[in-house]
């Protein structure tokens, strides 16, 4: 049941370089490993912090411009910290036809934020994504690791609320 669990990510502080060093070590011998390096660094720190990127460039032998170029090319990479839950509203064709715009609009309404913004309490960050490949359940929204399908705008409020109601999970 791993997929379903909602692990609240605990990101490392950007002052703690141990996770970065561990990642660098793992990819020491692999050629062309910049993208996995950035992916794992983002997983560890939540986003690609400038200080961490400078360190990564120096230690792994990349030009900082190259790292920044790659980080701004791929939509997966973030240069700013995100909220506890990342909301991804799918805007693939099937979802578009099924009214994904209304879903995004309703999430914006409920949370009082715009796309790519984070709620003031740091709970949610809202993003639009291209097709997540579950078109038969359109429209779809992914909150953290949970996928919500066959959505109606009316259901959004309840779904979002459920992420406040849950008792704080303690991961071991």
């Amino acid at each position: 049941m791993e997929e379903g669990c909602n692990h609240k990510h605990r990101f490392a502080s950007v002052d703690d370089l141990r996770p970065l060093e561990e990642i660098l070590k793992r990819y020491e011998k692999e050629k062309g490993a910049l993208i996995p390096l950035l992916q794992e660094t983002q997983e560890a720190y939540g986003y690609l912090d400038e200080k961490i990127m400078r360190m990564l460039a120096k230690k792994a032998g990349y030009q900082l411009s190259q790292i920044y170029g790659v980080a701004t090319f791929y939509t997966q990479f973030r240069l700013q910290p995100i909220g506890e839950y990342l909301i991804k509203v799918c805007h693939g064709t099937a979802c578009h036809v099924a009214g994904a715009d209304l879903i995004t609009e309703e999430v914006c309404n409920q949370l009082g934020i715009k796309e790519k913004e984070t709620t003031p309490d740091g709970k949610f960050t809202l993003e639009s994504v291209m097709c997540v490949g579950a078109c038969s359940l359109s429209p779809i929204m992914i909150v953290g690791e949970d996928t919500h399908g066959k959505l109606k705008p009316t259901a959004i409020k309840k779904i979002l609320k459920s992420y406040y109601g849950e008792p704080k999970e303690e991961d071991e």
């Binding site: 400038e50 990127m53 030009q63 900082l64 411009s65 190259q66 920044y68 170029g69 701004t72 090319f73």
Partner: peptide, 27 residues
């Protein structure tokens, strides 16, 4: 030296320095 790379993509793409730093703060 590699001061620049493209930043962003598509219509938003533009050459630039990392984090938009002035040239003196790059190599």
């Amino acid at each position: 030296v590699g001061v620049y790379d493209f930043v962003n993509r598509g219509f938003k793409a533009v050459p630039g320095t990392p984090y938009g730093k002035p040239l003196q703060e790059t190599p």
